[in-house]
């Protein structure tokens, strides 16, 4: 009779107070917190990632663990709280992200996006083909699945009383365009400097 060995290590290294990986993103001077617009963009990108892979939020959490970001995101509730800084959300908390929190989210986004590079390229390529031929988007199974899931997530989590959200909810086509635009942004996150590009682009128009 053999005893099953415990797979978990006896102890874990205590997480560093400030994860080193955050330093890969440059600091933007004179900014301590994020604007609602930045928070909204980050949450929407996470939403697009969720639409791309089933169980997306689980992958985000395990990514946070892999990258030693536990001190900032230790469980799903923390992650959810960070995402609820998006003013479009039904559960908008009026909190703001601080810079390390935003950096952590950017790193998770670019890391997840890089894992999904092939899928993102495939979907965007399919979208281009479909557009060139003037076909409806549901011609491509995988693409229409992504759009479908994105619309469902958006409907269930965003506050329809917000004018901008209501505009999106009114027209399916409009929402599809948003999903494709987010997919494009994710594509640019997959590159060699994708994380930095996304991070710096967040501050466009804010400084």
């Amino acid at each position: 009779m053999s005893q099953s060995a415990s797979l978990s290590p006896d102890y874990r290294l205590p997480p560093r107070p400030k994860p080193l990986i955050l330093d890969t993103l440059p600091d933007v001077p004179n900014l301590e917190t994020c604007s609602p617009r930045m928070q909204q963009r980050l949450d929407l990108l996470l939403l697009a990632l969720e639409a791309l892979e089933l169980g997306g939020s689980e992958y985000m959490l395990s990514t946070a663990q892999d990258l030693e970001l536990q001190s900032l995101i230790d469980n799903r509730v923390t992650l959810w709280r960070l995402r609820c800084t998006n003013p479009w959300r039904r559960s908008y908390t009026r909190n703001t992200l601080n810079i390390p929190q935003a950096k952590a989210l950017v790193i998770i986004i670019s890391y997840r996006a890089r894992q999904l590079t092939m899928l993102i390229r495939q979907l965007l390529g399919a979208h281009q083909d479909i557009q060139a031929k003037g076909l409806p988007v549901d011609q491509h199974f995988r693409l229409s699945e992504y759009l479908d899931r994105f619309r469902t997530h958006f409907r269930s989590r965003m506050n329809p009383r917000r004018a901008k959200v209501a505009q999106y909810l009114e027209a399916e086509d409009h929402l599809n365009q948003l999903a494709i635009a987010l997919l494009t942004q994710l594509l640019f996150c997959t590159g060699a400097a994708g994380g930095q590009r996304l991070w710096v682009s967040l501050f466009d128009g804010e400084v």
Partner: peptide, 18 residues
Amino acid sequence: LNTLELFDLVDAIDQLCT
């Protein structure tokens, strides 16, 4: 360029820069 080609271009540039 389409978006995929643009991305490849910018990624080539990023790889060069890094």
